[in-house]
């Protein structure tokens, strides 16, 4: 799945990641919200970005029907480990969570939290991404850390 980032750049989510998202969809009325962080590559000689993997819910996370809070230290440790093992080529790219709706859109709470992420995260990328996994589709948003603006990403059709 590919989203348009700019006239010459794309954001791709590799199939393995889509497969993991599929698992966490809130299909049952009792299913709780899941989430984690997005990680991937800034492609050499281009502005393309590939999401190669995600962190998934851990025991210490708080998961409710309509609420998710990841255990920061656990996920930060995972991100650090992957980043180190990849010699700095697999990087933190943003956050994901699920919604029990067909075509997801961010709640007021989500937007406020995303802005906090944009303002306070320390990393070398000016852009961060936010994914919401609905039961039938995936929504993707890009946030700019410089101006703290958030925009929805369009799916790229060949």
């Amino acid at each position: 799945m590919i989203f348009i980032l700019g006239p010459t750049s794309k954001l791709k989510i590799n199939d393995e990641v889509i497969e993991r998202f599929r698992v966490y969809r809130q299909l049952e009325s009792t299913a709780t919200e899941a989430g984690g962080v997005l990680m991937g590559r800034f492609i050499e000689d281009s502005d393309d970005i590939i999401i190669d993997l995600i962190t998934e819910p851990t025991e210490k996370d708080i998961r409710k029907r309509c609420f998710f809070k990841k255990h920061l230290e656990t996920h930060q440790d995972l991100v650090d480990e992957i980043w180190e093992e990849s010699d700095g080529t697999f990087n933190y790219l943003g956050e994901w969570h699920t919604h029990p709706e067909k075509h997801p859109s961010p709640s007021f709470h989500d937007r406020r939290e995303w802005k906090k992420v944009l303002r306070k995260t320390q990393c070398e990328s000016s852009l961060l991404f936010f994914f919401i996994i609905g039961t039938e589709s995936i929504g993707a948003w890009v946030g700019n850390r410089r101006n703290v603006k958030i925009n929805k990403l369009e799916v790229w059709n060949k």
Binding site: V37, R41, I50, G88, T89, F90, H97
Partner: peptide, 20 residues
């Protein structure tokens, strides 16, 4: 390899946040 295809960047320090 995936490594060869990507730029190297510094570490990220994430922030506490939640979703609803």
């Amino acid at each position: 390899t995936k490594k060869e295809s990507a730029q190297q960047r510094g570490p990220a320090i994430m922030v506490d946040n939640s979703s609803a």
